[in-house]
C-alpha cells in the first residue's frame, strides 16, 4: 500500500489519456528498438534499464473506492481486481481459488453487484465502489449474514466463506432468496469443497426470513 501510494505520488501529474497513449507508443517503439539490438538489450538488462522502462510505461492510473476508502493507484493493466486486493492492498479476505471465475471464492461487490474479482481487470473498476468481506461489518458489529454463518456453521475451513457471504448478501438483495431451491440455484457459483451447503442455505434463509437490512 505504502509503496503504491509512493509510486503514484512520484507519477503525480498524470497526463490526459490521449497524451498517455502517445507516450505509451513512444516508449514502446523505444522498447522495440531495444529488443532488436541484442547487445544493447543485454546491457539494458544488466542495468535493469528495461525494467525501469517497463515500469514506466506498463503502469496506468486508476481510482478505486475500496470499502469506502478511496485509493489512487498506479497499476499494470493486466492486474486483476483479486490480485490488486490481495497482493497490493493486502486485503486478503478475498480468496483465490481458481483464477478462472469457476469457484466464486473471490466474490466481491462492485457498485453493489456481485462479481468474480479474478475475472475483473482492476482497470475496469476505475471510479467504482468495491466492497470486500473486510468492508461488510460495521466496526465490531458483524453483518447479519456473518452472524448467521457462525450460528449455522456455514463453513469448515473458511476459505470459500468470504465469497459465500458476499454472494449470499447479493443473493438476498437481488431478490433471489425466496425459497430453499432458489437460494441453492443462485448460490451455485460458489463452491464449498468442505460441503457446508445445507448450513449456508439455512443461514441465508434465516437472514432473509428475519427481514434484517442486508
Amino acid at each position: 500500500m505504502k509503496d503504491l501510494d509512493k509510486g503514484f505520488q512520484a507519477d503525480e501529474n498524470h497526463e490526459p489519456k490521449e497524451n498517455a497513449r502517445r507516450d505509451f507508443l513512444k516508449k514502446s517503439s523505444l522498447l522495440t528498438a531495444v529488443a532488436l539490438t541484442p547487445g544493447v538489450a543485454v546491457k539494458a538488462a544488466e542495468n535493469h534499464l528495461d525494467e525501469k522502462v517497463a515500469a514506466a510505461f506498463e503502469k496506468m492510473p486508476v481510482n478505486i473506492i475500496v470499502n469506502g476508502k478511496p485509493h489512487k493507484l498506479s497499476i499494470e493493466p493486466r492486474v486483476t481486481l483479486l490480485d490488486l486486493l490481495r497482493e497490493q492492498l493486502h486485503l486478503t479476505g478475498t480468496k483465490k481459488g481458481c483464477d478462472y471465475g469457476q469457484c466464486g471464492a473471490c466474490t466481491v461487490h462492485v457498485d453493489g453487484q456481485r462479481v468474480n474479482s479474478c475475472l475483473t481487470l482492476a482497470m475496469t473498476v476505475d471510479g467504482k465502489k468495491v466492497t470486500s468481506i473486510e468492508g461488510l461489518a460495521k466496526g465490531d458489529e458483524l453483518h447479519p449474514m456473518q452472524e448467521a454463518f457462525i450460528k449455522h456453521d456455514g463453513f469448515q475451513c473458511g476459505y470459500c466463506t468470504p465469497g459465500q457471504i458476499m454472494s449470499a448478501v447479493a443473493c438476498i438483495r437481488e431478490g433471489h432468496a425466496n425459497s430453499e431451491t432458489e437460494i441453492r440455484e443462485y448460490m451455485s457459483g460458489n463452491i464449498c469443497r468442505c460441503g457446508a451447503y445445507p448450513n449456508i442455505v439455512n443461514a441465508i434463509q434465516e437472514v432473509k426470513n428475519g427481514g434484517q437490512q442486508v
Binding site: 486478503t92 461488510l136 458483524l142 456473518q146 454463518f149 457462525i150 463453513f155 473458511g158 468470504p162 457471504i165
Partner: peptide, 13 residues
C-alpha cells in the same frame, strides 16, 4: 460455535 468463526467470516483469518 466455531472458535475461529469470527475470523473466518470477517476475512481476518
Amino acid at each position: 460455535n466455531r472458535v475461529d468463526g469470527i475470523m473466518k467470516v470477517t476475512g481476518a483469518a
